[in-house]
Design a protein around this nucleic acid. Structure first.
Length: 485
RNA sequence: GGGUCGCUAGCUCAAUGGUUAGAGCUGCGGACUUUUAAUCCGUAGGUUCCGGGUUCGAGCCCCGGGCGACCCA
């Protein structure tokens, strides 16, 4: 650092700005590669360009220097500085003052070297931005903590990190196009809420000084999007951040991006089809194919129709006993004991069944799978199944072994919805911190009449995990980390 | 919340409780006009995450704390 600081001073002494307001670039490295990527070795194009890039490698010989320059899009080109072309002074200054990590400007002719490397043979050079800190060694992976804490360094060093930022945009913009093509309206609903709802999770709590009230960061936008449907926005979606005051691991982050969408006159099967199409369209936009190749080479096939299984039937088959909504808590506990599945004393039947399902059935999934028809008691916002009592019209979509999306035929009957939320409030009174609260304004909205509707939530970060094979802390550019020291 | 593992030079990693904590790359000085992680010669670089303890002696053992990873809940 100290030495590089001195070099910064030296640059000013010789009349070269270490941080100029701009440099006269005439083209991009990518454009040069596209136009001249095919030449034979030792070829001169006669074309003169000005380019800028960060130095990744440099190889200095006595009278000829080489440097690998990279642009922000990851494309690279070699810069060559020879005594004959830049003169003694400029060459000496280059060798003295330029380090790996600096961003430099080079003007010169596009050529290929004797070894065939596409290069710019400089006639002049200029500092574009002096790096005071050295880059890490390029040939070894940075440890994960540094990659996350200093993502800027990770982005410089690792193509996957750069690609992720672009993949996220490709996915999100394709989702918006897909919704636009289906006549959906995008809206934004409150992040700061006076009452949290729409999911089972603990919220972050804050206070409004002006109103002198407690506010919650939203755990889901669901109840507001439904208010919008009541109001006549019959196809509505939102892509935005949710916050849940829970632990972080390879599939959970305290703040995460969520897509929710609702469609009047659709049911959960319609929504499953739309969800599949949206994800397939996003996969093509992000990776070029519905058969997605991860960075580690494994493939995920998203083509065609996806598997669909029944929660109760699949779990029954796995445990060898017919399970129904009437199966007792005692029987389910016995099955959990037998399987070595731990459970808490207060867990209701539906929760125990879902644990058994996760233990036995999820590991058997081979591709994207819709799991159909969940227990009524764990799903307070879903309508009861039209033909299967004790169950609700809900699916969860699993990809790569984790929950990727969930879809409902929405509960729109205000009287039943009130009963369900009252039951939740009673669970909350018993100490379940994740139980839902009774949102009177939401119930009032339902009382004006909400059309029969389907609704879906899709985790955007998890969708990116599916499409890249990377962990959630790679899909989020700047994930929450505990402060250093 | 529980368990396991890790934290040593700018980076990636070594180092039976025992001499002055090492190596590669990076850096610095020198040589070199076609290199691709250039090469060759020389050289510098340390609060071993923090705080206690045991010991003649601690990077290593013990206790507490911090940060992270993985597994489990």
């Amino acid at each position: 650092m100290r030495i590089r600081r001195d070099k910064r001073e030296r640059l000013a002494e010789i009349g070269m700005e270490p941080y100029p307001v701009g440099v006269p670039v005439t083209t991009t490295i990518q454009a040069i590669r596209a136009e001249h990527g095919h030449h034979e070795p030792d070829h001169s194009t006669g074309q003169f360009v000005g380019i800028a890039g960060r130095i990744l490698f440099s190889r200095n010989t006595g009278k000829l220097c080489f440097a690998t320059l990279r642009a922000g899009d990851g494309t690279e080109i070699q810069a060559m500085l020879s005594l004959a072309n830049v003169g003694e002074e400029a060459l000496e200054q280059w060798k003295e003052l330029v380090d790996i990590g600096d961003t430099v400007f080079v003007h010169g002719e596009v050529i290929t070297s004797k070894r065939g490397e596409l290069s710019v043979m400089a006639d002049s050079w200029q500092m574009a931005s002096k790096a005071l800190r050295p880059l890490p060694v390029a040939h070894k992976d940075l440890n994960e903590e540094t990659r996350i804490r200093q993502r800027y360094v990770d982005l410089i060093m690792r193509p996957e990190a750069r690609q992720m930022a672009r993949t996220r945009m490709a996915v999100v913009s394709q989702l918006r196009r897909s919704f636009e093509a289906r006549d959906y309206v995008e809206i934004e609903t409150p992040m700061l809420q006076t009452m949290h709802g729409g999911a089972a999770a603990r919220p972050f709590v804050t206070t409004s000084n002006a109103f002198d009230i407690e506010l919650f960061l939203r755990i889901a936008p669901e109840l507001f999007l439904k208010r919008a449907v009541v109001g006549g926005i019959e196809r509505v979606f939102e892509i935005n951040r949710n916050f849940r005051n829970e632990g972080a691991d390879s599939t959970h982050s305290p703040e995460f991006a969520m897509l929710e969408f609702y469609e009047a006159y659709a049911d959960y099967r319609d929504m499953a089809r739309t969800t599949r199409e949206l994800i397939q369209e996003a996969a093509v936009a992000a990776t070029g194919s519905m058969v997605v190749t991860h960075f580690d080479g494994t493939q995920l096939d998203l083509t065609g129709e996806w598997d669909e299984i029944s929660l109760y039937e699949a779990t029954s088959a796995a445990v060898g006993v017919e399970l129904t909504p009437e199966t007792s808590v005692a029987d389910l506990r016995a099955l959990c004991d037998k399987a070595g599945v731990d459970y808490a004393p207060g867990w209701i039947a539906g929760k125990l069944l879902e644990e058994l399902f996760e233990h036995y059935v999820i590991p058997t999934f081979t591709g994207p799978t819709f799991v159909m028809d969940y227990p009524l008691d764990t799903s307070p916002l879903v309508r009861e199944h039209r033909t299967k009592p004790g169950r609700v019209e809900k699916w969860d979509l699993y990809v790569n072994g984790y929950e990727q999306a969930t879809g409902y035929s929405e509960l729109v009957d205000p009287v039943i919805q009130r009963q369900r939320l009252v039951e939740q409030a009673e669970l909350g009174a018993k100490g379940d911190a994740e139980a839902m609260k009774l949102d009177e304004d939401f119930l009032r909205a339902l009382e004006y009449g909400m059309p029969p509707s389907g609704g879906v939530g899709v985790g955007i970060d998890r969708l990116l995990m599916s499409l890249t094979g990377l962990g959630i802390r790679e899909t989020i550019l700047f994930p929450l980390v505990k402060p250093e020291r």
